[in-house]
Design a protein around this nucleic acid. Sequence first.
DNA 1: TCATTTTTTGACCATATGGTCATAAAATAC
DNA 2: GTATTTTATGACCATATGGTCAAAAAATGA
Lengths: 207, 207
Amino acid sequence: MNRPAAQKPVTRIQREKRAAILEAALDIFSTHGFRGTSLDQIADRAGLSKPNLLYYFPSKDSIHRILLDRLLDTWLDPLREMNESGDPVSEIAAYIERKISLARDYPRESRLFAVEILRGAPHVYDTLAGPLRDLVDRKAEVMRGWSKSGRMADVDPYHLIFSIWAATQHYADFDIQVRAVLNTDEDRRFDDASRFLTALYTRGLAP
Amino acid sequence: MNRPAAQKPVTRIQREKRAAILEAALDIFSTHGFRGTSLDQIADRAGLSKPNLLYYFPSKDSIHRILLDRLLDTWLDPLREMNESGDPVSEIAAYIERKISLARDYPRESRLFAVEILRGAPHVYDTLAGPLRDLVDRKAEVMRGWSKSGRMADVDPYHLIFSIWAATQHYADFDIQVRAVLNTDEDRRFDDASRFLTALYTRGLAP
DNA sequence: TCATTTTTTGACCATATGGTCATAAAATAC
DNA sequence: GTATTTTATGACCATATGGTCAAAAAATGA
């Protein structure tokens, strides 16, 4: 048996080392992309040798896949939480705030996702065209209802969602650019962004 | 003399081959990133051999640099065109439309830029912190004036600009995701996006 | 036509990289 | 303590890649 079998119990060392490897890999994949990352770099940052790393994961690709899968699992939560029975404009403002928090707290995950999408989503296309699309369809339907009942401006709900994704993830993905233009500290940047966006959408979507 | 000297006149073949190489390189760099692109791939797509390619450009890095420099030259034009003496809300709506047109007509350039920024802007940081920042500062000042004179809502002009960049470039950079969710044709997608965004900002920024 | 310059190519090199393997060293179980 | 399992490593391999070079082939100019 060459690597930890599925059935055997997971040891403490396995848990720790695997976590360290994934952590290191997220760091490097998210800035250098898949091809731009070498196993040696990951191994170095995780504090072990390349063969040792390959003892815990069968391949570079498998590490990348695990990171992406994990990411997708939680990436859609903020949208799921949007509640049909709440006040439309407040629900959307709250959604924006949740997305901004994600960008602030998980910028590496946001960048990993961005790099994957820029490459044409080779690993996650099915998720986009399946579960993601279904969720967006459902929420778009809710928004159409809000518009029809006159509680929110009548706008294209799909592009509304896209614009929120774009504007919020921008603060993680284009962080360097934002910092080059603005030289406020991180807390200030995210607070100002949140304030601006909620104001824009609140006014722009009011009935 | 190993490669075309600076002083010698540029031949027709040089002009054509260089253009073909840059075109091919833009294609591949913009989806696979710098490290993810090999000279062989570029040479193949441009229809010549790798040594032949290196006869026209001294290195892979030089090709990448030229593409980025070219891009930055024109990338800021839409913002420069924003005219202080026009009607604030219309000027911003027109700016959004120009940016959407760029995303539609030059998606590869947009992605090349995005990949560079995601990597931490190793090649263009100075431009971001210099000319880009200066331009944004100037336009932000103009917007502050608009707000002060009561012709536009009082919002943070920096985050306003960021949100426009994000929302418009999204349609180039995250094209695959947009298409996975929406299955309308390209013209429809961009038209709807433009309509949604101008409506949102027009309402959101009205005095 | 013939000399000169420009363009193209095949062979080659050094290095980086993903991955394997046999074996050694730790850790664990009894 | 000893047997067994888990973990770690150095040596190694095949392939990919950026780049060089000498020489052939085309193009050009007189």
